[in-house]
Design a protein around this nucleic acid. Structure first.
Length: 200
DNA sequence: CATGGGATTGACT
DNA sequence: GTCAATCCCATGC
């Protein structure tokens, strides 16, 4: 994906990243769940403005924002919109595609459904860590590639975001309808169909 | 400088 | 269903 892909409204990018490929170190998977964050709403780290922690969120479009969550997990986002806007798409779940054996070794378990079905799980499975913060997703080592043909017309639904305490009303979570690889099922609130993702 | 709160996960009741 | 692990950093005194 080129930088211009990310230099658009974060909600559009979050929907369009569904079906695209996240790849690192020989492992890859199809993105089946994303969430959008924007500095205008309180759940976004950039809501507090520009600080040492949030500086990556104000980086150019296409840069990776990787941060530590709950002191344990690394979560990866794709920075979006112009540099004066703090916005990013959190990658929350993948359907494993290649490098399954390496994923199983890193995760310490066998079940394919459990390898990448959560934002902390997929970074562990792909070997993505805090050292990848501020790296370029268009050139690697962590890269996002365009959708395979068979994912072109995938059905997408929106839902409320997971695990946040503020701005919980916004339907800014995007999922592949019916996917078995989501971090959690789509809620009763969600299920609203979103237009089929645009061509990447 | 001390404190508290997470964009989570896995183990356990 | 509950709960601890563990660390970065924003905030407040």
């Amino acid at each position: 994906m080129r930088p211009a892909f990310y230099d658009r409204p974060v909600l559009a990018v979050a929907a369009d990243l569904i079906g695209c490929i996240l790849e690192h170190d020989g492992c890859s998977g199809v993105i089946v769940e994303t969430e959008a964050y924007h500095h205008s709403e309180a759940a976004c780290h950039a809501y507090v403005g520009l600080t040492a922690r949030t500086s990556t969120l104000f980086a150019p479009a296409g840069i990776a924002y990787v941060y530590r969550s709950y002191g344990i997990h690394a979560l990866i986002n794709a920075v979006c919109e112009p540099e004066d806007v703090g916005a990013a798409v959190l990658i929350r779940a993948l359907e494993p595609l290649t490098g399954l054996d390496a994923m199983r070794a890193r995760r310490g378990l066998q079940r394919e459904r459990d390898l990448c079905s959560g934002p902390g799980k997929l970074t562990q499975a792909l070997g993505i860590g805090l050292e990848h913060n501020a790296t370029d997703l268009t050139t690697g080592p962590v890269v996002i590639g365009s959708r395979p043909e068979r994912w072109a017309g995938v059905q997408i639904v929106s839902d409320r975001r997971i695990g946040i305490t503020r701005a919980i009303e916004l339907p800014w979570r995007f999922c592949v309808a019916g996917s078995r690889y989501l971090s959690r099922p789509v809620s009763a609130f969600g299920g609203t169909a979103v237009r089929a993702a645009a061509v990447c």
